[in-house]
Write a protein that binds this DNA or RNA. Structure first.
Lengths: 112, 112
DNA sequence: TTGACATATTGCTATATGGTGATATGTTCC
DNA sequence: GGAACATATCACCATATAGCAATATGTCAA
């Protein structure tokens, strides 16, 4: 067995984990929630109001974000407050935004 | 209309675009292909051999990567060579890997 | 042109999941 | 305890898509 084959095989589960994180970030709804939480911790109902989404859906998406370790959960009386635990996600988004901007500029330049 | 509402509305399409890029990166198969291409440009059949995947599927995933502007296509006789056009994706993967490593270490520490 | 090979596309199935209404669980206050 | 509110979960539908076999398209060599 070659060294290369061994390395790739071992990296399989890691690749799946990486893909899983990207998968969590691949829904506009969840990005909206993360963006909102970027300004500070919020309760579920505050998110529901701000984003005009159904409570069930917000809860569900928060569960997915929480499971992925991107946001944290904290009881606050009858409410539950969520907050960002991985500021790294904003670096990720910034990198992608930079690429999109570059692509858009290239498209404009090609029309001149 | 509040300034905040206007800003969020305008950002809707951008958020969707960002989510789209993450979506392309959310499949282990595509990450495998990108990882392989990170070592240099390869033809479709070389990728098929290296990753032991069906040709139809490799072609399909390359199409998705290409459409997203992450890889470039270049005819080379009867073959077609693909190569990375966005080294940024490796930064993205590194950031995510760092998070996963941190999570794993935290889990280990909590068991001590 | 024809044959051999490389790549792309098509039609399909199976699976995953976002969003929803209904309902369950948890929390506070009386 | 019971009412009122906040959050989570359940069951469901609709949609998206990975992977596949079959086939179409593209390229070269003879």
């Amino acid at each position: 067995m070659s060294r290369r084959a061994r390395i790739r095989r071992l990296e399989g589960p890691i690749l799946s984990s990486v893909a899983g994180v990207f998968s969590v970030l691949s829904e506009p709804t969840r990005l909206q929630i993360l963006q909102l939480l970027g300004e500070g911790s919020l309760s579920v109902s505050e998110i529901v109001t701000a984003l005009e989404m159904k409570q069930a859906n917000v809860s569900k998406q928060l569960g997915i974000l929480s499971q992925a370790g991107l946001v944290g959960r904290e009881r606050d009386g009858a409410n539950v407050r969520y907050s960002i635990t991985e500021p790294m996600i904003f670096e990720l988004c910034d990198l992608v935004c930079g690429k999109l901007r570059k692509d858009a500029e290239a498209r404009i330049a090609s029309l001149k």
